[in-house]
Design a protein around this nucleic acid. Structure first.
Lengths: 211, 211
DNA sequence: ATAATTCTTGACCGGATGGTCAGCTTGTGT
DNA sequence: ACACAAGCTGACCATCCGGTCAAGAATTAT
């Protein structure tokens, strides 16, 4: 996953490369231990750089963390953003769910990073981003509501519907340890999970008389 | 929630009271910052005891954490355990979901504690407990499968069904910050969540021809 | 009352933590 | 080639970390 840097000033190739290295290492460590549990020494070690060198590129531990979160936010909201009113309602929702699930599968560290941040009350995600999330969800909820009004989807609370997609897809990434131990070693959680979620949302949302 | 102490030896009233005080403070701090992010100083401060006094009752930070987790585990699995094959399938599942949701609402710190532990790969939950969880889920999955075989529930993967209840109910507690900001301040996430989940599982599981 | 036991804590330890800084090395523009 | 800027690091600092300990305070048993 591309880690973008917010409002980036001009940077030399060295800066660009090292900032990426650091953010990648930070992702590894922060997602495993949370903000307070992560240490600069460990991030430096994973990045293969000295600690003072980290602090040459970022002014503090907090700044690394913030840059990381804000840089990943856009990519994380993309699947929902890509849900288009012009498409077929059921296919759009299934597509959203599927994209979110794939994202969680392919980028579990990112998923865990957001999870730990929000579990701890999201103290470091600023209001602007929270506002952005709120607006996006409300916007898409309106689309869902219109589809329901047109009888193209069975009714259910659209915001809770979006939350449920979030919860379920996130869960397979964040709780993979538990899911694997419960399913047994031979079963792949993602294959079964995708099938289950398709069934779930089909039965929840497919109109009863499609003809 | 009652915090039990595993295989408790005889304890004086003072010991019992102080151990409870410590575990309660530990729950507060560990659930907010994870194991590595929590400090004994902060736990001691919340408990209103001196740090050496903490270590008089528990031999290490790790022991506090372990005792806390194992003591809460039974209560956390209770809702699933209480699902009875003799009852009405749909009512039993709804009851399970509802109990789990109530548990998450009433004990969000406990929910977050488990969440952070499992997100970090559950390194400190020993194999015995993992085994217990696996067996319980498989046991209940068998019950669900029988119900489905009898045509009293629509078919869907029973283990993923249990996982989905886990994911959705947990989510309302662990991501409350996010859920509230998305729903808006006027709406209570729990009320709407309970209604949504009832609809969800009803449509997923209710047989098509109940007559 | 007094002795034994349990409970409590200030002072302390070695090591880790986030962060600084002077000065060295490397790269870049001319 | 040279000068300046950018990149880098060893040594260091104050503070915090989990944990120890000796000795005093409170409780309990006799």
């Amino acid at each position: 996953m591309q880690i973008k840097t917010a409002r980036a000033p001009r940077r030399s190739r060295i800066q660009q490369k090292n900032r990426e290295t650091i953010l990648s290492a930070a992702l590894e460590v922060f997602s495993a231990h949370g903000f307070r549990g992560a240490t600069l020494d460990e991030i430096a070690q994973v990045a293969g750089l000295s600690k003072p060198n980290l602090l040459y590129y970022f002014s503090s531990k907090e700044e690394i963390y913030r840059d990381l979160l804000t840089g990943l936010m856009a990519a994380w909201l993309e699947p929902l953003r890509a849900m288009r009113e012009e498409g077929d309602p059921l296919a759009e929702i299934m597509g959203y769910m599927r994209r979110k699930l794939d994202l969680s599968r392919d980028f579990p560290r990112e998923s865990r990073l957001f999870a730990t941040e929000i579990i701890q009350g999201a103290p470091r995600i600023n209001e602007v981003i929270r506002h952005e999330l709120h607006d996006l969800v409300q916007d898409k909820a309106t689309v869902l509501r219109r589809w329901m009004d047109q009888g193209r989807l069975r009714r259910s609370d659209p915001v809770h519907l979006i939350i449920s997609v979030w919860a379920l897809t996130q869960h397979y990434a964040d709780f993979e340890a538990q899911t694997r131990s419960v399913l047994g070693a031979d079963q792949d959680p993602w294959t079964g999970g995708a099938a289950f979620l398709e069934t779930l949302y089909l039965r929840l949302l497919a109109p009863l008389n499609p003809g």
